[in-house]
């Protein structure tokens, strides 16, 4: 059932939820801090330990969760519009693992290929190239004659995930122990490496990409009718498709570069938003951005506190929530309800 809330109501609610969860997340962690301590750390009159916890551990992490969650959700919503199918998700159709594979290749073989210094830049660039390449590949494969073949799309995803798994397996064989740990990190996803440099990098890449995507709402609506129909409606289909794919690749690539593969956010969030306000992309895109950020902040809070003081990979949590959700979606689609 679709509720069709007014767009402004939902957007304010999602933005408020993201903000509120962000504030709560700054207050929650293995070290109990009260509101006064958090405010003190922000405005500078408490001890070093509290300041460090708030400013250099929790704040960058929450900021990164908001950015990566929002970016993955808006990329998922865009891909679903492009592929004309509500089952497209960066993780499911192989885009995330393509990005992760490229990044992992740089980690394991990078020292030989680029030397130490280039590695810092090589990583996000490789992740972006990997996500761009796989998005393009799946897009070309799944769509011919202006139609999307859902089976082809999901099968391509399976094939790419398997291929990446195989190549990562080879890399595991040649990797040393340190590199091995990094590989696991990439495959499970975690925000545990969030520092300010990562936040600034993501902000610089993801914020402009997200804002740009928000302007494509009308065009994505038209694309849902079909490529030629969109063309007839006055959309420059080629340019719009190319722009959307590159922006999605940037978002997923940047997200994977800092946090590994975090699945299912791009699937679950747009679907939820559609249930709340309907399928119009002018509402779905900003709604997904806010709600995706909020969900990842919440999931990361769970990852930090569930096994405290140790932590869980947040990708496991999102998969545990997302996979059953995906099955429900599939069943619904089989019954023709989607």
């Amino acid at each position: 059932m679709i509720l069709r809330l007014p767009r402004s109501v939902l957007l304010s609610a999602c933005a408020a939820a993201a903000l509120l969860l962000g504030i709560i997340a700054i207050g929650v962690g293995p070290v109990p801090l009260d509101v006064r301590a958090v405010l003190g750390a922000l405005f500078g009159d408490v001890d070093d330990a509290t300041t460090a916890i708030v400013l250099s551990i929790r704040l960058p992490r929450v900021a990164l969760a908001l950015l990566v969650g929002g970016g993955l959700a808006i990329a998922g919503a865009t891909m679903q519009g492009l592929f004309r199918n509500p089952l497209a998700d960066p993780g499911l159709i192989g885009v995330s693992s393509g990005a992760a594979l490229a990044a992992v290749t740089v980690i394991v073989l990078g020292d030989g290929l680029f030397g130490g210094m280039a590695g810092r830049f090589a990583l996000p660039i490789a992740a972006f190239a990997g996500s761009l390449g796989t998005t393009w590949f799946v897009y070309r494969l799944a769509r011919f004659c202006g139609r999307t073949h859902i089976a082809t799309m999901l099968l391509a995803g399976i094939a790419i995930n398997a291929l990446c798994g195989a190549v990562i397996g080879v890399l595991v064989y040649v990797a040393n122990d340190d590199q091995l740990r990094s590989l696991t990190f990439w495959q499970m996803g975690s925000l545990g490496r969030a520092g300010w440099p990562e936040v600034w990098m993501c902000l610089a890449i993801m914020l402009p990409a997200m804002i740009w995507l928000l302007t494509l709402g009308r065009s994505l609506n038209a694309l849902v009718l079909g490529d030629s129909e969109a063309q007839y409606l006055g959309i420059d289909v080629q340019r719009c498709t190319r722009t959307a794919i590159i922006l999605c690749a940037l978002l997923v690539g940047a997200g994977v570069a800092v946090s590994g593969v975090i699945g299912f956010i791009g699937l679950v969030i747009p679907h939820l938003i559609r249930l709340l306000i309907g399928p119009d992309h002018r509402g779905v895109l900003p709604g997904a951005a806010c709600a995706g950020g909020a969900l990842l902040v919440a999931a990361d809070m769970g990852a930090r506190t569930a096994a405290a003081p140790a932590e869980l990979p947040v990708g496991l949590l999102t998969a545990a929530i997302g996979a059953p959700f995906f099955l429900v979606l599939l069943l619904q689609q089989r019954r023709g309800a989607v």
Binding site: R84, N85, P86, A222, L233, G278, P279
Partner: peptide
Amino acid sequence: EITLAFPFRAAEVVAMGRDV
């Protein structure tokens, strides 16, 4: 034969014609 995978309302589909 135009099919849609997303649950747009009839009025929303017609409104797409006015985008331009």
